[in-house]
Write a protein that binds this DNA or RNA. Structure first.
Lengths: 111, 111
DNA sequence: TTCGTATATTCGTTTACCCATATATGCGAT
DNA sequence: ATCGCATATATGGGTAAACGAATATACGAA
């Protein structure tokens, strides 16, 4: 009864995951989780070159994880689906557990 | 009160996400979600070259998303943390919604 | 020891991504 | 039209990661 995902669907799945597989884009997504922001605000918040921010926003846009709303000369970006934050939080929790386990291991070795 | 993640932590976060950003590894993780399997079983399940499977398993191992148990000449792989499946499911749900929206859009244009 | 199966790794190549810098475009104001 | 700011994209270079094919290692059985 379990139908296998086609290769194409899995590739799309992977492309979506790839979108969140970069430190800058992770930071951008969390920033946008606080509310819509324009590019300049994101540049200031992350202290990154404007070109870099725009490039990563393009990646997120192309994968439909953010969308834009023009307001005069500003373009406001916002999260398209807050579940991406849930997914990021899950991965972050996994990471924290891995780190905690390694810390415990290190302590055990020290004694 | 919100402490910013260090760059290093965010990089680790991204490395974990990168681990799930490949179609083959996604397939491997879902396979392992059904229960532990050895490499040959995974090779047969996914119809991929053994070298390819081993290489991707190494990636997952290095990031602590799977762990191994040797049993005679077999090495059984199992999920280290089932939350990674939850994260993958979230991303898959997001993907499905994107596809549905595009289908609706296409239909609307047709009429 | 040798053989056969299971798993891992190496090699060479290609593809894809990241960054920084520079340049281009879009829009409001003058 | 031009100026200035906001945003986007193009270019070039470095690095990482993907693949197939081949080879190496680990283990059990004989």
């Amino acid at each position: 009864m379990k139908k296998p995902e086609t290769q194409e669907l899995r590739t799309m799945h992977a492309m979506l995951c790839q979108a969140i597989a970069d430190p800058t884009r992770i930071a951008l997504l969390y920033e946008l989780n606080d509310g819509p922001k324009n590019v300049t605000q994101l540049v200031n918040a992350l202290s990154l070159p404007q070109g870099t921010v725009s490039r990563h926003l393009k990646t997120l846009r192309e994968r439909y994880l953010v969308h834009t709303r023009r307001d005069g000369s500003y373009i406001h970006y916002e999260l398209a689906d807050s579940r991406v934050i849930d997914a990021l939080d899950l991965m972050r929790a996994i990471k924290s557990d891995i780190l905690a386990r390694q810390r415990n291991l290190a302590e055990a070795v020290m004694k």
